[in-house]
């Protein structure tokens, strides 16, 4: 057991090796440019997988191909055994409800309150009329307030999102993703817009809340130190292909240099 597993209370009790997410031969292209060239990747229930690699290696595209914010051009994305790629738009929207996402630029609705932003995690189950009136169900609001308290923003719940600092906004983003009660978390460079100390706190929070709820995490991160500190498994991406896959301990200097095609450290 690695130190990460030891910190997950449930993990030791019932390890579950069957993959929640199984990616096979995933391909994506922008016009003629191939961005992903046959990616295979499994994410199990208790995984915190970090995807590392240089800029332009396809990290962001890989994350977005899973919930089809970017349409892949080939392959399979099996989420809990169901291939997401052939789904019709309504079925895809239902599948997206179960996959939380956290973004580099937080992607909050700036002019709305923290509470409204967090409740938006439940939009997939919210009707048109409620969306228009913004009269949320009481149990939904209570759940959102609990999550806001969990990420430490209780006194800011009724403030507009654009009044918050970067670190606070990312906490709102985390609460919004958790509001979906997700069974998978996709995290895209969560710390790139934050200073180093806040970045560590945010990574810590993501690992904690995911561990408490046993949500597997797939996280793009270009900061190698953060990746090493927080993940249970790493995938090194280069030119749209996986160059390394394994536990962080197994990642030595040679393989890092291989992934980044440059002298590191």
């Amino acid at each position: 057991m690695s130190r990460n597993d030891a910190e997950r209370p449930d993990a030791a009790a019932a390890p579950d090796p069957s993959p929640v997410l199984r990616i096979r031969g995933l391909e994506a292209r922008y016009g003629k440019r191939e961005v992903l060239r046959g990616i295979d990747l499994d994410v199990a229930r208790d995984d915190f997988v970090a995807i590392i690699g240089p800029s332009g290696s396809g990290k962001s595209t890989l994350i977005r191909c899973i919930n089809r914010l970017v349409e892949p051009s080939g392959g399979q994305v099996l989420f809990e055994g169901v291939d997401l790629l052939p789904l019709t738009p309504p079925a895809l929207r239902r599948a997206r409800r179960d996959i939380g996402m956290i973004f580099q630029e937080f992607n909050l609705v700036e002019r709305m309150t923290v509470l409204d932003n967090v409740v938006m995690g439940r939009l997939g189950e919210t009707g048109t009329l409620r969306s228009l009136t913004r009269i949320w169900r009481k149990d939904v609001v209570d759940e959102a307030l609990t999550l806001i308290a969990r990420v430490g923003l209780s006194e800011h719940a009724r403030q507009r999102a654009d009044r918050l600092s970067g670190g606070q906004r990312q906490r709102v983003g985390i609460a919004r993703a958790l509001m979906q009660r997700p069974r998978l978390l996709l995290v895209d460079e969560p710390t790139s817009s934050l200073d180093p100390r806040i970045a560590r706190e945010v990574m810590m929070l993501i690992r904690e809340v995911a561990g408490e709820r046993r949500i597997p995490v797939l996280c793009n991160i270009h900061d190698l130190d953060l990746a090493l500190a927080f993940c249970t498994r790493m995938v090194g991406l280069q030119h749209g292909k996986a160059r390394f896959e394994g536990r962080p301990e197994a990642l030595d200097r040679t393989s890092v240099q291989h992934i980044y095609e440059a002298e590191v450290l």
Partner: peptide
């Protein structure tokens, strides 16, 4: 950004306009 986030939660095209564009 916000449009992407609302699509990712499973929001409908109407909700994307309502929360992603209107504000």
């Amino acid at each position: 950004g916000p449009i992407e986030a609302i699509r990712a939660t499973g929001g409908s095209p109407f909700q994307v306009v309502l929360f992603g564009i209107v504000p």
